[in-house]
Design a protein around this nucleic acid. Structure first.
Lengths: 299, 299
DNA sequence: ATGAATAATAATCATGAGTTATCAATTAGA
DNA sequence: TCTAATTGATAACTCATGATTATTATTCAT
């Protein structure tokens, strides 16, 4: 264990191998010639390999030396690119980001965020998974996802959150329903209707808030169907299985079979929040959260 | 240029990355814990990469650190095998050896030498080329071949040589020739015969020696054909184009159409020599020359 | 609270990389 | 056949820095 080969030896060796001249190589390395000679000698002795043939006037590579020159050059090249790669990873310009989200976040928010983010982070890969609120919270604690997009009032301790959108609710009616934007006054007009709502398991606090709306309107709705997909809700509404209430971000102008009525006059709104684990050390996360902030400032 | 990454840093980093514990890693490296901490910190600062997440009680790899752990391990592995390869090259256990030779050397000598040599040097590749004497000498000086097998008296200065075989000449006669082993007395019996001899250009000194034999026998032969291939000589002799004289090593018992008569009673013999450039630094050469010496001691 | 575990800091030491000065051997030119 | 120039190796010494010891700060377990 008396000798340890260091990168320095390899660098020095390559310099001499390229110059085939100790003085010139030493100049190039900004060290003195005797120091270089000593290091090369030590390397030769340590490896048990004759690297150069010195004829007191000429320096020549041996077969082993010539082989090493070629191989070690490759070696430094790959080391260099490995380090460059690690630096990108460190800066968060390379890596992956795992997102969980409730379906409505995929309508607008996530595509927009990703679009802005990839301008500066082309090499970051996104892993996307639709999940209910509670699964997102669990996955955030176990670091299975980096950011969650949830609809919930109170974020558990240990997680950080920021509100992305604050939006009113929308009533969803079939196209030719007697109530429309013109004659709609308040929700009590629908106290006898069947309601199709998001599954309370998907987001209990969201469900609770919707129920508050009915409370304020003085009736308890007849909930006939539950689902977690807005598309399913619209289909059921179109086929007269009932009416529904959804966040405005799920409103779509492309649908002919259903109409939307925004509920401006009630105090309830629903918020979409981005949530993350404060101990998450994924370097990509920091940059992504900056993107989230700039998204908020625009909307 | 203030910071230089050394192998030491990489070794230390790998140790910590594997133990995830500075004390244990330091023990494994036979250095003190503070020294290790300093080196890692220096490496992190130098590369501008956060390698570990230290929470004062736990050490954890960052994404970049985890990536580097994997890559640098590979790195050391390849470096190791590169050095091992170079060591083999240095010892002459790996590499190539270029041989030039006159045709007769391929009958017995070269196959035998190669056979013995490959027992200890399986990985050495031979490059074989039949050449006339002068081409071999030139190729030795220009290092196009490492060893030559020639038939010549005086080896040029700058080359080393050793005699491998000293052998008598053989008369070559067609099968049913009036002269045979029984009634042969001396060469003057063939003073009226046609002779087929090796081309003097192929080996002038060899040719000169054969001519001395005729001189001593008191006649000048009628040389009707020249060739450089013993096989051609035998064919021509078999078809009664003439008789010939060849080195004993070209005698073959498998040939039915020609007979051989060894010329014991004349002073001339012919020598096969191995020749090499004394400045040749091919490490395989040294070991091969040892093989040549041991071949001589057996014959 | 208390004590054990762990990494970081501070101050000091000592190894060995690097320096200067010189030599020995070879080559080139007068 | 002398120099003079070139080039790598040696010897002695300097000093930068890697490593050590002693200590602190923090956290975790009891």
């Amino acid at each position: 264990m008396s000798y340890q080969l260091e990168s320095r030896h390899l660098r020095y060796f390559l310099s001499v191998a390229e110059e085939l001249h100790f003085r010139k190589a030493a100049d190039r390395l900004y060290i003195s010639q005797p120091g270089l000679s000593r290091q090369i000698k030590e390397m030769e002795k340590g490896l048990g390999i004759q690297l150069f043939e010195r004829t007191n006037r000429k320096v020549k590579l041996t077969k082993a030396g010539d082989f090493l020159k070629i191989e070690l050059r490759k070696h430094f090249k790959t080391l260099e690119s490995t380090l460059a790669h690690a630096q990108l990873l460190n800066k968060g310009l390379l890596g992956d980001l795992k997102l969980g989200y409730v379906g409505s976040a995929m309508e607008e928010v996530i595509p927009r965020l990703m679009n802005g983010f990839r301008k500066s982070h082309q090499k970051v890969m996104f892993n996307l998974k639709e999940m209910d609120n509670q699964d997102q919270i669990n996955s955030l604690f176990s670091n299975e996802i980096d950011v969650g997009f949830v609809r919930m009032e109170r974020i558990p301790k240990g997680l950080n959150a920021t509100t992305i959108l604050q939006e009113p609710f929308c009533l969803v009616l079939p196209e030719n329903h007697p109530i429309n934007n013109k004659n709609f006054k308040d929700l009590s007009q629908l106290k006898d209707a069947s309601f199709i709502l998001f599954d309370p398991k998907y987001s209990p606090s969201y469900y609770e808030k919707v129920m508050q709306i009915f409370d304020d309107s003085g009736f308890t709705p007849m909930v006939t169907h539950n689902t977690i997909h807005s598309g399913s809700i619209y289909k059921l509404v179109a086929h007269h299985f009932g009416v529904s209430i959804v966040p405005r971000s799920l409103k779509s102008d492309h649908l002919k079979e259903v109409t939307f009525i925004e509920l401006h006059d009630i105090p309830q709104q629903t918020a979409l929040s981005a949530v993350w684990n404060e101990n998450n050390r994924n370097p990509v996360l920091d940059d992504f959260l900056v993107q989230v902030q700039s998204f908020k400032s625009v909307h």
